[in-house]
Write a protein that binds this DNA or RNA. Sequence first.
DNA 1: CGGTTTTGACCCGCGC
DNA 2: GCGCGGGTCAAAACCG
Length: 429
Amino acid sequence: MEEKIQTMKLLELDERPPYDDNNKDLQNKIDEPSSFHKNTPGSTLLLSLSLNNTTQPPHQIQGEPQIQIGNIRVKLDEAKKENENLRGMLNLVNDRCNVLQNRLLLAMHMHQSSSLSQNNHNLLLKENTQDAGKSVLPTRQFFDEPSPSNCSKNNGFAIVENNENNMGRNLACEYINEGEINSKIEDQSSEVGCRRARVSIRARSDFAFMVDGCQWRKYGQKTAKGNPCPRAYYRCSMGTSCPVRKQVQRCFKDESVFITTYEGNHNHQLPPAAKPIANLTSSALNTFLPTSSTTLQQYGNNLTNTFLFSSPLSPPNSNAIATFSPSPTCPTITLDFTLPPSNYLQFKNHKQSSLLPFPFQGHYNQSFEVFPNMINNERKLALVDVVSEALEKDPSLKEALFSAMSSFTNGDSSNIINKQSQLPSKSSG
DNA sequence: CGGTTTTGACCCGCGC
DNA sequence: GCGCGGGTCAAAACCG
Ligand SMILES: [Zn+2]
C-alpha cells in the first residue's frame, strides 16, 4: 500500500516546476547525509530506484543533473512524509480497534452483571445519592465540551485528550472538587487537589516492560509497608516538566515479577520505542475509566473487578488480566502479564451463562481453559462470533453496547484525521 | 560540569 | 489532634 501511494505521489510531483521554495529547502536538506539514514523501508526502495536513474547516460539527463536529483529527492521526501502519516493513522486505527474490543467485552460483562444484580445496584445507587457530596457518581467529561452544571453535581473524572501528543489517545484523569470545575477548565495545568488514574503493570523481569523507551529520573525510594522490597519513584525526564511518573517495585511473593505503575500523560512527543507502553496504558484507561454513559458504580460493589484484557502489544504480550479498582480517589488498572503467554481465553463454549467467564474473582489462573495453539487473529474471529450471537439473542444488549461506546465513537471520526495531521513530519526530532 | 542517584526530611491525607 | 504511611523534595554524592 505504501509503495503504491508513493508511486502516485511521484507521478503527481512530476508536473511540479523544478524550482520552488520547497525545492530550495529540500536541496539544503540533501546536503546532510544523515537524513538518508532515517528513511523508512519503503522509501529506501524508492531511493535505490532514483539512484538508478542517476546512473543513466548524460544525454538522458539533458544537462541538468542537479535539478533532476533535486526533483527526485523532493518526491522522496514527500513520499516519506506521506508514509509516516499513513503509518501513524494505521497505528491510531489499530489502537482504537483494540480499545473498542476491550470495551465491548467490558460492556457485555457489565450488561450481564447489571441484569443479574439489578436490585442490589438500585439499592447501591439510592444509598450513594443519600451520601451527600462524597459518593456522587463520577462521570467522564471532556474539557472541550465543558458542562458546568453536570460537573457541579458530579464530583468526578475529567478526561483530557492531549492533542499535543502524537501517540494516539493519551489520557489524563483528574479528580475535580465540587465548585472548582470552571477554574479547572481554564487552568488545566493546576495540580492542586487532583488525583490521576493509574495503570499498573505486573510483568516478569525479562519482559519488554523493563525498558519502556522513556527516560526516567529517580526522585525517591521508599520501603512500603508489607513489602520488604523498596519502591522506587521515577519522573519522566524527556520533556521539560513532564508530569508523568512511575513507580517500580518488586513483587514480594515472586521476586522475578516487577510491578510498574504509570501515572499522568506525557507533554512531549514520544520516541518510537516508548509508544507501545504508552499505547498500552492509554488503551487500558480508555477501556476501564468511566465514559459519559458509564460510571464507576457500574463496576459494582466489589473492591476489584477482573477481566481479560486484549493489549495492543504484539504476542506473547497480547493478552493480560486486567484488574480494575474503581476507587474514586485513585482508580487503578492493573494489567497482569505474568501468565504463560499461550494461555488464551476459551471462547468456543459461549453459552449464555458463560458468555464471558468474568469476573475471575481472584482465581483466574484456574478459570482459564487453555488454547495453546490459538493465535490472536483466531481469537478475534471467535470474539466476533460470540458478540454477534449475543447481540442477536439479546436486543437490550445492543442498546447497552451502543451507549457504552457512543462517547468513544460519536463525532470522533474527524478526530482521527485531526490526530493524523498532528503527526510529526520527521521521524526524529 | 551537567545530569542522575541517594537518602533523610518533610508534607499531607486518612483513620482512629 | 495525633500517628502512620505513601509520596515528594532537595541537598549531597556520584558519574560519565
Ligand atoms: Zn514524559
